[in-house]
């Protein structure tokens, strides 16, 4: 007997499985799978300005830095200013979805490709963002490689204000509507990587970025 049959056989025996109760249980299971009702959620104010504010506050609590700009066109200059203030390099790997912005005018050199170990700055967008916890939702694809938000020491993410949703459940619904099935990787990111494994003292920059900077575009 295969291990699969052995394990499932013992589970079935323990649950007194038979054709009759299997049919009933399967119906209950299909209903559970189709159910999109969220569980209890903490209150999150849903007006656009309140969502943006909550997202900003929660992101800062997760040790990200946040700035708000009016339009896409302002993004490269805002990022150039941040990099200069932090004395960081002006070369970055960027998601293909953002490569069309005028980076050269802001004095930045960007390349749209997968990330490499030597990349020090990674610039990404995000699929959407969750106000409840100050979290970015990244969905992987050829144009949005996962490693750009992981390998570089600095991760900068461009967030559209209109894509800030109250809850993670809203993010799932957006993903189901836009993508159909889930992409290979959905990564929720809340601030720079960290560890508390030595004396429960939080240190930023464990294996991923040391810092995460968010540029929210209002338009």
């Amino acid at each position: 007997m295969s291990s699969r049959e052995d394990i499932l056989g013992r589970v079935r025996a323990a649950l007194h499985r038979n054709a009759g109760n299997a049919a009933v249980a399967r119906e209950v299971m299909m209903a559970a799978l189709a159910n999109r009702t969220p569980g209890p959620q903490p209150a999150v104010a849903c007006e656009p300005q309140a969502l943006l504010e909550r997202f900003r506050v929660k992101s800062e609590q997760a040790s990200s830095t946040v700035e708000v700009v009016a339009t896409d066109a302002e993004v490269p200059a805002a990022i150039a200013k941040y990099l200069a203030a932090m004395k960081l390099p002006t070369t970055a790997v960027v998601w293909a979805s953002l490569v069309a912005l005028d980076w050269a005018a802001a004095g930045l050199k960007v390349e749209a490709r997968g990330a490499r170990d030597a990349d020090l700055v990674g610039i990404t967008g995000c699929f959407c963002a969750v106000a409840e916890t100050g979290t970015l939702m990244m969905t992987s694809s050829p144009d949005t490689p996962a490693a750009v938000s992981l390998l570089p020491e600095t991760h900068i993410a461009v967030v559209r204000a209109a894509r800030i949703v109250p809850y993670m459940e809203d993010a799932w619904n957006l993903a189901r509507a836009a993508l159909g099935s889930l992409p290979r990787a959905v990564n929720f990111i809340s601030g720079p990587s960290r560890t508390g494994d030595i004396e429960q003292t939080i240190v930023l920059g464990a294996h991923g970025p040391y810092r995460v900077h968010l540029v929210i575009v209002e338009d």
Binding site: G114, R184, V186, I189, S190, P192, R194
Partner: peptide
């Protein structure tokens, strides 16, 4: 900090995974 939901394998044109 990170919460990842991983589904299936990389597509040929993807850079990572």
């Amino acid at each position: 900090n990170y919460f990842s939901i991983l589904t299936g394998v990389k597509k040929p044109e993807e850079h990572d995974g």
